[in-house]
């Protein structure tokens, strides 16, 4: 099958959008429902990325693909889940400011470790040697299939988030976000629920990081800066933190606009894309956060519509 018609950068650009939608959806469970301010998304994602990359490249695996990928990705998810558990435990009793600083600090630790442990991670020089767990003949075909697999994974995450809103578990998360002391007085082990939530969602962020590693096939500490946290947060907040589709709509309108629409369909001088656009992108996301929080803090989709959902589920 010839894929000459397909721009390779379009595949990687779309992959990036799908990935950030996935991160935004997981962030929706943490911030939108349970109201725990996680500013360290890149830490959990990056821990997954680096754990995956280092295990994949540095370990002399006794078996081939796809097991090498599966084992490394599983270990990466578990590492991120464990980190999520520990971070959640540390910030469990803090207010939003404390949680924000704690999670941001965690992402800084991940960056420092990736930079300083250069014998394992390649440090500032980066680490190559990653690859797809299959071979379809051309890089473009491999990337396209990987994009399809990533889309399927994010589709599953979307399905899970949609379902959580309709379960007693989701109700518990909303209760914790709304009034944790009241939930506790009703016999709910709210700290346990927050820890479990972080283990699951941060583990999945780590899995998204491992998937990213396969796509880029190179570990680069530049990817551990605040960019991916900012992109996921800006998208989620623009779309609406409390709504299932908030992350999807918001990320499409922000990352999708910059990395797909402007990149491929707006005729601008080539040098802009290497120089001005990436910087402008971060600046616009930052400004967008400020404007949305000032004028429409509930986001484009607005508040949670719990009444409508409950009516639909239990017919009045």
């Amino acid at each position: 099958m010839s894929l000459d018609w397909l721009d390779a950068f379009l595949v990687s650009g779309t992959f990036g959008v799908v990935e950030i939608v996935g991160l935004g959806l997981l962030l929706h469970l943490q911030v939108g429902l349970t109201r725990i301010a996680n500013f360290g998304v890149v830490g959990f994602w990056g821990l997954g990325l680096y754990t995956f990359g280092v295990l994949y490249v540095q370990v002399d695996w006794p078996f081939g693909e796809p097991w090498q990928f599966l084992f490394s990705a599983l270990a990466a998810s578990l590492a991120a889940a464990l980190a999520g558990l520990v971070v959640a435990w540390l910030i469990a009793d803090l207010d939003s400011d404390g949680a924000l600083v704690g999670t941001l600090g965690f992402s800084a630790i991940v960056l420092i470790l990736a930079t300083t442990q250069d014998q394992l991670t390649g440090g500032a020089l980066g680490l190559g040697g990653l690859g797809f767990p299959y071979d379809l003949g051309t890089t473009k075909a491999n990337e396209l299939l990987w994009l399809a697999l990533m889309t399927a994974l994010v589709g599953l995450i979307l399905g899970y988030v949609w379902w959580v809103h309709r379960t007693p578990y989701g109700r518990l998360l909303i209760a914790i976000g709304s009034n944790e002391p009241l939930a506790r007085s009703m016999g709910k082990h709210t700290t346990g629920a927050k820890l479990t939530l972080f283990a699951i969602t941060c583990g999945l962020m780590g899995l998204l990081g491992a998937m990213h590693g396969v796509m880029v096939r190179f570990l680069d500490i530049g990817s551990l800066d605040v960019g991916i946290t900012l992109a996921a947060l800006a998208g989620l907040i623009l779309g609406g933190t409390a709504r299932v589709w908030g992350a999807v709509i918001g990320v499409l309108l922000t990352v999708g606009l910059f990395d797909i629409v402007i990149q491929f369909y707006v005729p601008l001088p080539q040098e802009w894309f290497t120089q001005a656009i990436p910087v402008l992108r971060e600046a616009v996301f930052g400004a967008l956060l400020v404007v949305v929080l000032l004028f429409r803090p509930q986001g484009l989709l607005g508040q949670m519509r719990r009444s409508k959902l409950i009516r639909a589920m239990h017919d009045g």
Partner: peptide, 13 residues
Amino acid sequence: DFDQLTILDSMLL
């Protein structure tokens, strides 16, 4: 109260 939960939600919780 829970500002995001309906009356039925509270009871089911």
